[in-house]
Simulated scan of single mutants.
Amino acid sequence: MLTAPSVRPVDPAELDDVLRVLRREPVNNAFITARVETAGLDPWRLGGEMWGWYSAGRLASLCYAGANLVPLCAEPAAVRAFAERALRQGRRCSSIVGPAEETAALWSYLEPHWAPAREVRACQPLMAAERESAAVPADPQVRRVRRDEVERVLPACVAMFTEEVGVSPLAGDGGLLYQARVAELVGAGRSFARFEDGRVVFKAEIGAATSAACQIQGVWVAPERRGEGLSEPGMAAVLRYALREVSPVISLYVNDFNAAARASYRRVGFREVGTFMSVLF
């Protein structure tokens, strides 16, 4: 089967070394880097373990093992070691996600034991922008969601998640964790929407933010308003906020089969800089 792993959970005292590895790929790793910068490496605060793979005694690769299993700056030997540890532990994650090459290799080891997956999205272009849109004017009606508007934006967030992932975020615990996450983003000033008659017709969030890069997520237009040209000006507005107030590089990833979204993001000014992969259980 697999060779014995050379991997262990990192110690909280290794925070500087972990951040050194994560910052080698600031766009790819933005989501996990933001969590580590905020929570440190204590598993209870981080929401999972951070596994480290060491080369010549030096931390070289990482894998986040929580609700998601995420290989980070993982060379082939590290991926193999992470796979064996995951197999020994058993599947606890709801998805495997990360840069496509590492994620595909990790899944190749795990698939014989963890299959079937509910869905495998093998090609999800990673897109990035470093300047405000020159071609699409920002929608002046897209603004930050206020703290007292969490209940108004929540139905749109639930609809987007269900449409994108294929399951409701309200399952299991009744949505308590998901509602807390929505409220957290609103409270941090990273949730944006266009409201009409009190209803959300466009929304997006900055889901992860570091000083080097941030990631837009949850882009959604109300179904009855699609095709009216709300998404591109809305994205241009969120991009402007993000560049002016958060990070110098703004990223997102999108399914390869969503040709309309990819074209829309390109018109706003995003370009493809890599590929992600997701395995959903």
Rank of each mutant, 00 (worst) to 15 (best):
R244Q: 11
E184H: 11
A222G: 11
R226I: 07
R190E: 06
S231I: 12
R190A: 07
V238N: 03
A261N: 09
K203P: 00
A259F: 09
C214G: 02
A188D: 11
E232M: 13
D256Q: 15
G189R: 03
G207Y: 03
T210C: 02
A183M: 08
F192I: 08
G187N: 10
M235A: 10
I250A: 12
G218N: 14
M235D: 06
F192C: 07
T210F: 03
G229H: 01
G218L: 06
A180G: 12
A237L: 06
R244T: 01
W220P: 05
Q215G: 08
V238F: 01
E232Q: 14
G227C: 10
D256F: 13
P223H: 07
A188V: 05
D256V: 14
G234T: 02
L230F: 04
V219S: 11
S211P: 02
N255M: 14
E228N: 04
V201T: 14
E184R: 13
S251C: 08
R199S: 12
Q179M: 08
A222C: 13
A212I: 00
N258Y: 11
A180P: 00
A208L: 01
T210R: 04
R244N: 09
F192T: 06
E245N: 15
V200M: 08
Q217E: 13
A242F: 00
D197W: 03
W220R: 13
Q215A: 14
G207E: 06
D197Q: 14
D197N: 14
Y241V: 03
Y253G: 10
R225G: 10
A236L: 02
A213K: 03
L230T: 09
G218S: 15
F202S: 08
A242H: 01
L252W: 07
L239S: 02
A237Q: 05
V201E: 10
R225S: 12
A260F: 13
R194S: 05
Q217H: 09
L239N: 02
G198S: 13
S191W: 12
